[in-house]
Design a protein around this nucleic acid. Structure first.
Length: 659
RNA sequence: GCCCGAGUGGCUCAGUGGUAGAGCAACGCACUCGUAAUGCGUAGGUCGCGGGUUCGAUUCCCGCCUCGGGCUCCA
């Protein structure tokens, strides 16, 4: 006998809870506990996200979404975007609002202001203040569902909202629209007040009073529906969190990231520069940056040498025929530097090294016994990146790839990719990265060449390698290069940011286009498969990422200056110089600073330069061949025998470099 | 490429319709010092570039360049 006044709902832990008929998810949360009720922002009922106050039915599977979960923050941010929109519409009569989704760490909302007005910093402050008032007013988020016709009438003076409604009704909605509506023949809207209502699928927090921990971050231009030719809108970025502490933590993280900005550190540490006389996106390396880069490259060469690679060199320019053969001129002409007309031909700076490596392969007949043939080059390429996209070392026009092309047989493919993955990870680990994520990118039919069969084989070889490695990976549908599928490896840095670095790409197309062959054991001609792969990706970009990862404090094996020796007074300068010599003879990078400034000041200068070891030598040290060791981030140790310090230094370098 | 913002000594920044200032860095002198800033002094800028308005522009206007934040793009 079922009590009609009660319903049973199922909870995530498998238990059931009995509630009065007509109870909402909010009532359920309250019935479970007051802490949960306080943290609840939305609910998942039968796998569908919904508002906290939507009524439950018997048999529903219900999970409460709390503010400190990823899903909960997403709801907070999306709701805060509505508060932002309300504030802007109030403060800027005639403003049109478009879309305002939650994004990683925050949200944005795009507007069109009357007369092409733009937001200023002062506007941002005023908008923030008005948002605070809306939060204080604790307006409810009330969901309403209506027909598209009624919705069009409701948003009659909001052309962007009408466009979204029309697109959804006509069945041409895309991912941009999906967050905005309920789907089907019903349009859902959320009303906050008599004057503010926004098109939205939801869910939302119960009321604006739940949203006090927000901050507006910046204003930017953006295009309607991401279309470069569409209207330019004014975008406001903001962030919102479940607590004051979480918001502050986020702001501190941003500050930390700013301190680590590689462009700032590169100037501060005198590593490299971008002279405007050179042109945008082109860097020159100063001695201190160059030494670090050389060490990185040396390490790379050593690993490749031991990994069965053969080194090659190729020129920076090539006749246009080469890039016609490779297909680059068909697919990436816009991204290539413009051509030079010379003698009887047209020449282009190379955007990639692979065509030239194909020519090396094709120079003579190859036997299956030579495969896999692994060619390696630190090859400098030039790509015409659009002016607005350049960004320090991370997006640059002239850069050097640690580029390898591996020619192998179909049968060798899966194994080769497998061992490549291991090789890539082991090299990255030496640079302090140990948190990786993997993405398998698949074919984009409109932007690729080759047969389905080729693509299927290559894709499954990559997938097999990932599965053998036993790692989680995501699929980038349609993200592949035009010539084949790929695996991209992202690393997470010291402060948790993700960077895309390494890539392994299968290529059935270039061997075809260049007519590459090998003679098999069967004495027949076969077509090899080619793998493109880069570990650093671009040496410049990798250097920039490393600089941010280490915050400028390079590990000892990479530090431009590893040891600075400071004589306490001029009387100890001779001794300091002899220690420099002893360490230089051991292959270390060491210098000294004469005693014409006070010791404290010289120590401070060395610390600011992030030198791993500062050695102080005075009377006692001269007498007994000891040093005072002041290590970066450690405790000062007086009277350390020089020989012990030398051991420590050697161990430090060996450990950090993995050699 | 598009939208917004910014360009003042090597760096960080102040300032004004009447041809510019601070701190740090550099250099010089004195101090010779035991673990994150000794004192005094000197030098250094055609105020991003070009044009216009003005008796006079670093300042106001226009164009360009470079940089920054986004959009788009990223083989």
């Amino acid at each position: 006998m079922v009590d009609a006044a009660l319903i049973d709902v199922r909870l995530p832990d498998g238990s059931t809870k009995q509630l009065p008929t007509g109870s909402s998810a909010a009532d359920l949360a309250a019935a479970i506990g007051s802490r949960l009720a306080k943290a609840a922002v939305a609910a998942v009922v039968n796998q569908r996200e919904t508002d906290l106050h939507s009524p439950l039915s018997s048999g529903d599977q219900v999970a409460i979404v709390t503010a400190e979960s990823d899903a909960g923050r997403h709801v907070l941010r999306h709701s805060t975007a509505h508060v932002l929109a309300q504030a802007v519409l109030q403060l800027f009569p005639g403003a049109k609002f478009t879309v305002g989704p939650a994004i990683e760490d925050g949200f944005y909302y795009d507007f069109e202001l009357p007369g092409g007005r733009t937001f200023t910093e002062e506007d941002l402050a005023a908008i923030g203040t008005r948002m605070g008032e809306i939060v204080a007013a604790d307006q409810p988020f009330t969901r309403l569902e209506m027909s598209p016709q009624d919705a069009l009438a409701l948003f009659a003076d909001q052309p962007y909202k009408c466009e979204i409604i029309q697109r959804v009704t006509s069945g041409t909605a895309d991912a941009d629209d999906a967050g905005e509506v309920a789907g089907g023949d019903t349009v859902s809207v959320y009303r906050n007040s008599d004057t503010f209502v926004d098109l939205c699928r939801g869910p939302h927090v119960p009321s604006t009073g739940r949203l006090p921990h927000f901050a507006l971050m910046k204003v930017a231009g953006a295009h309607w529906r991401s279309n470069e030719k569409g209207p330019t809108l004014q975008r406001i970025y903001g962030t919102a969190w479940e607590s004051k502490a979480a918001l502050n933590e986020h702001l501190v993280r941003l500050e930390e990231a700013e301190k680590r900005d590689h462009r700032r550190l590169a100037v501060e540490m005198d590593l490299l520069s971008f002279p405007s006389e050179l042109g945008g996106g082109l860097a020159v390396w100063h001695p201190k940056g160059a030494i670090v880069r050389k060490l990185m490259e040396d390490y790379s060469r050593e690993r490749h040498q031991n990994g069965g690679y053969q080194f090659v060199y190729t020129p920076h320019l090539a006749n246009s025929h080469l890039f016609e053969t490779s297909g680059h001129l068909d697919f990436y002409k816009d991204g290539m530097y413009p051509p030079m007309e010379m003698d009887n031909g047209t020449y282009y700076p190379k955007p990639m090294n692979c065509p030239m490596h194909c020519l090396i392969y094709r120079d003579r007949q190859r036997s299956y016994r030579e495969l896999p043939l692994r060619l390696f080059e630190l090859g400098t390429v030039y790509r015409y990146e659009r002016a607005g996209t350049l960004h320090g070392l991370l997006r640059i026009r002239g850069f050097t790839q640690d580029d390898s092309h591996i020619f192998c047989t179909q049968e060798q493919l899966a194994d080769e990719i497998g061992s490549l993955l291991g090789f890539v990870l082991s090299v990255l680990r030496r640079f302090g990265f140990d948190d990786f994520t993997y993405k398998l990118s698949t074919r984009n039919p409109g932007k690729s060449i080759g047969t389905d069969d080729m693509w299927d084989k290559a894709t499954s070889a990559l997938r097999t390698a990932l599965e053998k490695l036993g790692v989680q990976y995501s699929i980038g549908e349609g993200d592949a290069a035009f010539y084949g599928p790929k695996i991209d490896i992202d690393v997470r840095d010291a402060i948790g940011r993700k960077w895309q670095l390494s890539t392994i790409q299968a290529d059935f197309q270039l061997p075809e286009r260049f007519g590459l062959e090998y003679v098999g054991a069967d004495n027949q001609r076969h077509r090899p498969i080619m793998l493109h792969r880069a570990l650093f990706g671009s040496v410049e970009r990798f250097f920039g990422v490393l600089l941010e990862h280490y915050g400028g404090s390079f590990p000892t094996w990479l530090a431009p200056v590893q040891v600075r020796i400071l004589p306490v007074t001029s009387a100890h300068e001779g001794h300091a110089t002899s220690l420099v010599e002893r360490l230089v003879n051991e292959g270390f990078r060491v210098d000294t600073a004469v005693a014409d400034e006070q010791l404290g000041k010289r120590i401070r200068a060395a610390k600011m330069e992030r030198i791993p070891y500062v050695l102080v030598v005075g009377d006692d040290d001269v007498a007994s061949d000891t040093v005072g060791v002041n290590p970066r981030g450690g405790e000062v140790q007086r009277d350390t025998p020089f020989a012990s310090f030398l051991d420590r230094l050697r161990a430090d370098v060996r450990e950090a470099s993995g050699r």
